[in-house]
Simulated scan of single mutants.
Amino acid sequence: MVLWLVTRTDRTSVSTLMRCAWRTVTSIVTRAVDALIDSRRLENLYRIGVDEICYRHPHKYLTIVGDHDTGKVVYITEGRGRDSFSEFFEQQSAKERDKVQVVSMDGSPAFRAAAEDHVPRARQCMDPFHVVDAAHARDIAADADVEPVRVPNSETPTTYRPGTVLDTWMRVLAGGCEWLHCDVAAWNTDLDHHRPFDHSDPAAGGPTAAGNLTAYCRNHHRLKHSGHWQVNADGGIELVAPTGHRYRPRSAGILGARGRDRIVDPATRRRTRAQNDAARIRAERRRRHATDEPAPF
């Protein structure tokens, strides 16, 4: 029952349902894999495919190798680099590697290098999931409804909400929420005024214009107006954290095609991560000492 459940839900839910410890579920799965895995799965492989999957953020990947002839997964290991794919070939004998005729992948230089090292005679193919050829692109464009986005005029509007053209233009430029490390799509964000809009006198307040609007998701929009973070929009968006650290986030759209989230002035960091952890521990001890609250350990 545990083995059937773990293929359909997470281990925490399984342990709750079966009334056993989380580590017991892990032990059952480990024993079952050792007992039931086919030791001959790496034999007679002729056409294989390799790809990676992210199982935990940030940057926790698994390399997965499948058999195109049977449609089954034959190997999984941590990582997504050259060494991870090389581990798969090292599990095979030289005779078994010579049988491999085709290796499909997503064009990763690391995967290509591993295949060239261990199966140099095998043909390398691009995974069709990652490729759109010219003919397919022409077919898609032939039936597409093209609506050109016009650059909004520079007039100073006095309405609070942007018009359709300006709204579309700002979302195309932003691509997503322009807060630090946020991946919410621009079409699910709010357009916020850098300089607040004056509802009593619209002509005197912040205009609803391209240079005065930014896309934020609802959570970060509220965080901006909470007062804990400061936002400077002169010459680009700059976020100032409550700790004093300053960040310049990268736009996900046209504006940030060649940029990335970065710290504006790393040299001005007041404390390292270890120092921050030590400071939190000291603060917690002072708080408990002041309230005579017993320690939890």
Rank of each mutant, 00 (worst) to 15 (best):
A278Y: 09
P202F: 01
F88K: 03
H118C: 05
D145M: 00
R82V: 10
R270H: 12
T7M: 04
R80K: 14
R273P: 13
L166R: 08
I64H: 15
R260S: 08
F197D: 15
Y61F: 06
G66A: 07
R11K: 09
D34Q: 09
R19Q: 08
S39Q: 07
P207E: 10
P266M: 02
E284D: 14
R112E: 14
D292F: 15
V132L: 14
H57A: 09
C182M: 01
F88L: 00
L255N: 10
Y216M: 08
S226T: 03
H68M: 06
R121E: 13
A142S: 08
R138V: 05
C125S: 08
A252M: 03
T243F: 02
A257S: 15
R11V: 03
N276T: 11
F85A: 10
G175A: 01
V6L: 08
M105R: 15
G256E: 10
R258G: 07
I28M: 01
Y46P: 00
E96Q: 12
S13F: 01
D167V: 00
Y160C: 10
P157A: 01
P109G: 03
I53T: 15
A142T: 03
F297V: 04
T208H: 10
G176R: 09
R282T: 13
I254S: 07
R282K: 10
F88M: 02
R80N: 13
A290W: 09
P242Y: 04
F197A: 05
F85H: 05
K72F: 15
D183T: 08
T70V: 06
D192C: 02
I37A: 04
R123F: 02
R31H: 12
T156F: 06
V6H: 12
Y46E: 10
A94E: 10
N188D: 14
I48H: 01
R40S: 05
P109N: 00
L223V: 11
A135M: 04
P109S: 03
L166N: 05
Q230R: 14
G175V: 03
A215E: 12
